[in-house]
């Protein structure tokens, strides 16, 4: 009971003492923080809740993406290194032979096709001089020859296969458009052959070289292709000569031109005839 009473008195005296002390404490100088400190703290508080730009919110995503790209690139490079064939040694061994063969084939084909348009043009010139003026106006004869002559210098710099293809189109004009699709197919086959030859050539010195040694070389195949084209041109020229002869017969009044023409039609039913003979 006494202790409770004492506690009550103590609390009362404490509260009285605190009240008095508070009054005196309130009279003390009211210290305040410096303004610079206030500003620093407020700035810090504002920065802490500043909304970050959208891209900064996903900063982790950028990091993850970058890391993923690096890992992917590294794995691809590693994978390619593991699976890559040993080109170095085979290419080093094959390169001189291969290059030599390509150069020889190119020279041969260039030489052949440089001569061809000139020959064709000269023959045309001779024919046009010696024969009829009507033939000059013929679309079958005149246009392809002049085109071939004009385009001949440009063609020298191009690929042999492309030249073969172009020459085939020249003869197309001479023969008619009916055969163009067949010639185009032939040109594609030639390109494919060229690619196959390159591939086979690169493997020339490999262990399977003995197998490939029996295969035709690029030069041989190039010759085959060009000889075919040349033979075709030759055939076309022969046919035109024959037609010219028939026209001559007709103009001289010889009636045998009709029988000659009939036999020509029987032999070459799809070959286009000049206007003089179609009347």
């Amino acid at each position: 009971m006494n202790s409770i009473h004492n506690n009550g008195e103590n609390d009362k005296s404490l509260s009285e003492g605190l009240d008095k002390l508070s009054r005196e404490y309130g009279l003390l100088e009211q210290d305040e923080p410096p303004e610079l400190l206030d500003q620093a703290i407020l700035n810090s508080a504002h920065r802490a809740v500043e909304k970050k730009p959208h891209w900064m919110k996903f900063g982790w995503l950028h990091g993850l993406t970058t890391a993923a790209v690096f890992v992917l690139a590294f794995s691809i490079i590693l994978n390619q290194r593991e699976n890559a064939p040993d080109f170095d040694t085979s290419m080093r061994n094959n390169e001189p032979v291969r290059l030599q063969r390509q150069k020889v084939a190119k020279k041969q084909s260039d030489a052949q096709f440089e001569e061809r348009p000139k020959e064709l043009g000269l023959e045309r010139q001779e024919k046009s001089d010696s024969s009829l003026d009507t033939l000059q106006s013929s679309p079958v004869a005149a246009a392809p020859a002049s085109a071939a002559i004009e385009s001949a210098p440009e063609d020298r710099a191009r690929e042999p296969v492309a030249e073969v293809q172009r020459s085939l189109y020249v003869s197309d004009d001479m023969q008619g458009k009916g055969e163009r699709s067949d010639k185009g197919t032939l040109a594609k086959e030639l390109i494919l052959e060229e690619e196959l030859i390159d591939e086979a050539d690169s493997m020339a010195d490999s262990p399977e070289a003995s197998t490939f040694s029996t295969m035709p070389r690029p030069a041989v195949l190039g010759e085959t292709a060009t000889s075919e084209a040349k033979a075709q041109v030759k055939t076309d020229l022969e046919l035109e000569q024959r037609l010219l002869a028939i026209i001559k017969l007709k103009q001289s009044g010889n009636e045998t031109w009709k029988t000659e023409l009939e036999s020509f039609k029987e032999s070459y039913p799809d070959y286009p005839l000049p206007d003089e003979l179609t009347d």
Binding site: D38, I41, L42, A45, H46, V49, E50, K51
Partner: peptide
Amino acid sequence: KGNAKAFDELY
């Protein structure tokens, strides 16, 4: 919640 003005008053 991000209201900087509230901190100013509190401060």
